Amino acid sequence: MPTVLENVGSAARDFCMLERNFLSHVRLGLLLLLLSCSVLLKVRIPGPDTVDSIEHNTLGTTLASVEVATAFVVIFAGLWEYESGFRDMRGRRAFLVFSAPHMIIMVFISAVIFTTCLVLLARGDEIGP
């Protein structure tokens, strides 16, 4: 059953901010899934003149698996942040406060993305055929 809230002050703007934040998390998660799919496609589709190597497939598969896990963590973190913010908004409490667990998760996600960029730049030719 939907909850009806009065539109006082900046309630509509705050709700739109919560939705925008969640949709940004979903977009990042989808981009990470797309990156993992492209890495898996590069690993799985060998060219006609290349020899398939187990070491190359292992690196690509591991990288793609980390990206898929990271994508699900990002979407879960966005959903958790949205729910906690909406709960605070319904309870008429301040919800624009620093959330340490969310920040720790996002720092971890940023480190994974940065490391992935470094691996793809350094060993991109070794990931696939």
Rank of each mutant, 00 (worst) to 15 (best):
S10Q: 08
A11V: 07
A12V: 12
A12I: 11
F15R: 00
C16H: 13
L18F: 06
E19N: 09
E19T: 02
L23R: 15
S24D: 13
S24A: 15
S24G: 13
H25P: 06
V26T: 10
G29N: 03
L32E: 14
C37H: 14
C37D: 10
L40W: 00
V43W: 09
V43S: 09
P46S: 06
P48E: 03
D49K: 13
T50L: 08
D52H: 01
S53R: 12
E55N: 08
H56L: 05
N57V: 02
T58L: 07
T58F: 05
L59M: 12
L59T: 08
G60K: 10
T61R: 06
T62G: 12
S65K: 08
V68G: 04
A69D: 04
V74I: 03
I75L: 07
I75W: 02
E81P: 00
E81A: 15
Y82D: 11
Y82E: 04
E83S: 10
S84M: 11
S84F: 02
R90W: 01
G91V: 00
R92A: 11
R93T: 06
A94M: 14
F95S: 15
L96W: 03
L96G: 02
S99R: 11
P101S: 05
I104E: 12
V107L: 15
F108R: 00
I109R: 03
I109N: 02
F114T: 02
C117S: 10
L120K: 07
L121H: 05
L121F: 08
A122G: 10
R123P: 01
G124A: 10
I127P: 06
I127N: 04
I127K: 05
G128H: 04
G128K: 00
